[in-house]
Amino acid sequence: MEVQFTLNGKKVSTKIAADTVLLNLLRDLGCKSVKCGCETTNCGLCTVWIDGKSRLSCSVLAASIDGHEVTTLEGVEKEAAEFGSFLAQEGAEQCGFCSPGFIMNVLAMFRELKNPSIEEIKEYLAGNLCRCTGYMGQLRAIQKYMEVRNTAVNITVKKMGGEE
């Protein structure tokens, strides 16, 4: 069967078997940031965005993305690098194996939640497992990133004559 979708802003048309999992298709298409860590939808390493919403690509049949938009870490490199610098400043970046899925969820959370509390951040990211770090450095990095990004957004809105 053939699927056509948008991957990181580019149109893709490819043949797949009916039982192909999105995780495997994305890796075959060169998106090496999408990783398999558990095969049970428990670790978050395979997180991608489908039409802007976080999804675990290991639990999605590739046939179901026909006509949809898929974004991987490769498609948000600039934002990912910016947040990655906040992780590094907090000493929360270790081996990097879980980072792509974690970063995809943090960026999605930034787009969905306005000024989330620590508890809301923890709940949003509950499905992302990290075996190298304690989560406190990651939480500090998230809070600082969101503070800086929200300030930048507010400044831009003011310059454009809008309201906060």
Rank of each mutant, 00 (worst) to 15 (best):
V34N: 03
A62H: 09
C46D: 10
C58F: 06
C58T: 04
E82W: 08
H68D: 02
A81K: 14
L45Y: 09
L61E: 07
C38N: 02
A80Y: 07
S85M: 13
H68W: 00
S54A: 15
V70W: 06
E39R: 10
T47G: 11
R55L: 05
E39W: 01
C43V: 00
T71N: 12
G37L: 02
N24Q: 10
V70E: 04
L29Q: 10
E39V: 02
L25P: 08
T71L: 14
I65H: 05
S33N: 11
G75M: 07
R55H: 12
N42P: 00
G75W: 02
L45Q: 07
L61F: 15
W49L: 08
T47Y: 13
L26E: 09
R55F: 07
A80I: 10
L25R: 10
A80V: 08
D28H: 14
E79K: 13
L25D: 09
G67F: 09
S64T: 14
R27H: 06
C36E: 15
S64E: 10
D51V: 04
C36P: 00
D51N: 14
C58Y: 04
E79V: 01
V60D: 00
K35P: 03
T41K: 13
T72I: 09
T72A: 09
E74A: 05
C58W: 01
K78M: 08
N42C: 14
C58P: 05
K35N: 11
S33A: 14
S59M: 12
V34L: 04
V76N: 08
R27D: 03
L56S: 11
S64N: 10
K35G: 09
S57M: 07
E39A: 13
V34P: 03
S64W: 07
H68T: 03
G37T: 02
C46H: 09
G67I: 09
L45C: 14
N42W: 10
N24P: 00
D51P: 00
K53T: 05
R27V: 14
L73D: 06
L29I: 08
A80W: 09
G84V: 04
T41W: 12
S33E: 13
W49T: 02
K32W: 08
C31M: 12
G75N: 05
S33V: 05
S33R: 03
I65C: 04
T71K: 15
C38R: 03
K53L: 08
G37M: 02
G52W: 13
E82G: 04
V70T: 05
S33P: 00
C31A: 14
L73I: 14
E79I: 01
E79Q: 15
E79L: 11
S59Q: 12
K32C: 00
C38S: 02
C36D: 13
G75A: 11
G75Q: 06
E79D: 15
S85F: 06
